[in-house]
Design a protein around this nucleic acid. Structure first.
Lengths: 147, 147
DNA sequence: TTCTATCTCTACTCAATTAATAGACAAGGT
DNA sequence: ACCTTGTCTATTAATTGAGTAGAGATAGAA
């Protein structure tokens, strides 16, 4: 029941891009520095998100990555699905054919219920919310320094 | 985001015991046959549940396992916590000390929210419910044969 | 008492997955 | 041209998952 580094890093990468893309594309090296993740590994994280259409890239000097859509259109469920594979706590939920009892299996019904609940929660969390939370958090932190 | 065999088998084992313990202790070999799991591996599943106080065991002839408490007192969250370890999608949620940013980390807040939702869902599912679901399911299946 | 059924425990193995690292290559802007 | 940046393919070490093997302990029955 763990989220792997791919999923966790992916979320942080998107958040990083969202908060730094005002002045043009954000380059991998800077993300890597800020997030303390190797560039090489980061590429493996960001590449699927490019394929999934969360970010755009441009090559060469002044290149980098930018969000490909509004941050309110990217949900946690999207990110995790792309980086960790479909949210599926037990295979038989998504692939009933793998077990002949699936149509009458009480256990399967349970996993299905758990899965639905996870999906619903994740779908309700957007990148935009995170960005806003971060802003208010920063504000309160800097405020505490002033006081 | 997968539940491993330990957790899945554990649930099935409890359900199996609950539905077969009327005539005394249920032996591992029978559970193994019915659930198509090796006895050896099954022991690794049932042993933590014994330690956790879900089942009692008696040794020797006529021995076996029985539920140690009412099926309404065992929740899915209990079972999974015992067999898969604490429900924790990301370490920093349960152990804030592992990361110095944890107190101001937006990502962590997200994982915490996901975790809480999973826990709440699992806590709401009791073994008793499963037993009852199975009964009604059996009834409807046998009915369909009669018709 | 002895036999047998049953649970108990430790150790081992094999495969898959995770989390990286390394290095060559491709393309676009100045 | 040159430098910057993204793109791709391998490789690897560590961890976890899933299961097997076999000896040992204990309680009831004959």
């Amino acid at each position: 029941m763990k989220i792997s580094t791919k999923g966790r890093y992916g979320l942080r990468v998107l958040l990083d891009i969202a908060t730094h893309q005002e002045n043009g594309p954000v380059i991998l090296r800077d993300i890597a520095k800020r997030q303390r993740i190797s560039e090489k590994y980061l590429w493996q994280v960001i590449n699927p998100m490019k394929s999934a259409g969360f970010v755009n890239s441009s090559r060469g000097a002044k290149g980098g990555y930018m969000l490909a859509k509004g941050s309110s259109e990217i949900t946690l469920l999207d990110v995790i699905s792309v980086l960790e594979g479909p949210v599926c706590v037990v295979d038989c939920v998504d692939e009933p054919a793998t077990c002949d009892r699936s149509s009458v299996c009480v256990a399967r019904a349970v996993w299905s219920r758990v899965e639905d609940s996870i999906k619903a929660t994740m779908k309700g969390i957007t990148l935009k919310q995170l960005v806003e939370n971060e802003k208010t958090l920063e504000a309160s932190v800097s405020l505490s320094y002033v006081i």
